[in-house]
C-alpha cells in the first residue's frame, strides 16, 4: 500500500461517515447510523493496517502518520459517545474534525520512508504513540462538548451533558497518563533517564496538569460549569502545543529529542 491510495480510502471513509451522520440526525435509525459510520472507521483502519504492513513498521513516526491515527480515533471517540449518550450531532462533529486532519494529510503528507532510527526501535514505541493518539481523540470529543455547552447551551446544560464531558475527560486523562508514563518507562530503557524536562515532556506535563485542574475544579466547584468549560478549552490548547505547536516554539526547538 502506498500513500498515493490514501485519497481513495479517505474519500470512502468520509462518505460513509457523512451518511452515518445524516442517519443519526434523522433520528430513530441508530443501528443503521452506527453500522454505516462503523464501516467508515473499518475502511479507514484498513488503510492504516496496509501502511503498517508495507512500511514494515507501525505508521507512527512522522506528523502525517500520527494525524492518520488522530482522524481514526476522533471517529472512534465520536462513535463511542454516540452509542452511550445518543447525541445526534456528535457523529457530524467527529466527521468534521476527522476530515480536517485528512485534508491536512492530503495537502501536506510529509515523509513516509521505511527508515526508523535506532532510538525508535523499541517495543514501547507503538503503545506510547497509539495510546496518546487515542487520548487526543477522546479529549477532542470533550472539547467539542465544551464548545457545545458554552455556545449552544449557555447555562441550560443538563447534568447528563456534564456527565458526558466528565466521562470523556476521565477516559482521555487515563490514556494521557498511560502515554506519559509509557514514555517515561521507554526513556529509562533507552537512555537511563525517565524524565528529563525535554520540552515535549514539559508540555506533556502541562497538558496533563491542565486536565487534572479540570477534574479537581469539577469536584471543588461542581456548579460552576462555565469556568470548567473554559479550563477544558485551555487544556486543549496546551494539548495542541504539546502535539505539534512546540515545533513552532523557538524555546523548544533547539533542545528537544522529540522534534519530527
Amino acid at each position: 500500500m502506498s500513500w498515493d491510495s490514501f485519497i481513495w480510502f479517505a474519500a470512502a471513509s468520509v462518505i460513509l461517515w457523512i451518511i452515518g451522520s445524516v442517519l443519526a440526525w434523522a433520528g430513530g435509525k441508530r443501528t443503521a447510523a452506527m453500522s454505516v459510520y462503523g464501516l467508515g472507521i473499518a475502511v479507514f483502519f484498513s488503510f492504516i493496517l496496509a501502511m503498517w504492513i508495507s512500511l514494515e513498521r507501525p505508521p507512527l513516526r512522522t506528523m502525517g502518520e500520527t494525524r492518520l491515527w488522530y482522524s481514526f480515533f476522533l471517529a472512534v471517540a465520536g462513535m463511542i459517545v454516540y452509542s452511550r449518550w445518543k447525541y445526534k450531532w456528535i457523529l457530524s462533529f467527529g466527521t468534521l474534525m476527522a476530515t480536517v486532519f485528512i485534508v491536512v494529510n492530503l495537502m501536506k503528507p510529509e515523509i513516509h520512508s521505511k527508515a526508523l532510527m535506532p532510538a525508535l526501535q523499541s517495543p514501547w514505541f507503538a503503545p506510547h504513540v497509539i495510546v496518546y493518539m487515542f487520548s487526543y481523540g477522546v479529549l477532542g470529543a470533550a472539547t467539542i462538548m465544551a464548545l457545545y455547552i458554552l455556545i449552544f447551551k449557555k447555562g441550560k446544560e443538563t447534568s447528563e451533558d456534564m456527565a458526558t464531558t466528565d466521562n470523556l475527560v476521565a477516559t482521555g486523562m487515563a490514556f494521557l497518563t498511560f502515554g506519559m508514563l509509557f514514555g517515561a518507562l521507554w526513556a529509562q530503557e533507552a537512555w537511563g533517564t525517565y524524565w528529563g524536562w525535554d520540552s515535549k515532556e514539559t508540555w506533556a506535563a502541562i497538558t496533563w496538569m491542565a486536565y487534572l485542574l479540570y477534574i479537581h475544579f469539577r469536584i471543588a466547584r461542581p456548579k460552576d460549569h462555565q469556568t470548567a468549560m473554559w479550563i477544558l478549552l485551555l487544556a486543549f490548547i496546551c494539548l495542541q502545543i504539546c502535539w505539534w505547536g512546540i515545533n513552532y516554539l523557538p524555546s523548544a526547538h533547539a533542545t528537544s529529542v522529540h522534534v519530527y
Partner: peptide, 29 residues
C-alpha cells in the same frame, strides 16, 4: 529508581481503574 517505578505502576493501575469508573462527581451538592 525502584521506588519511582513503584509510584509509576500505582499511577498506571489507578488510571486504568479511573477509566472504568470515571471520577467522582458531586453535582447534587
Amino acid at each position: 529508581l525502584p521506588f519511582v517505578y513503584a509510584g509509576i505502576f500505582m499511577m498506571l493501575a489507578g488510571a486504568f481503574l479511573m477509566m472504568i469508573v470515571g471520577f467522582k462527581k458531586e453535582e447534587t451538592k
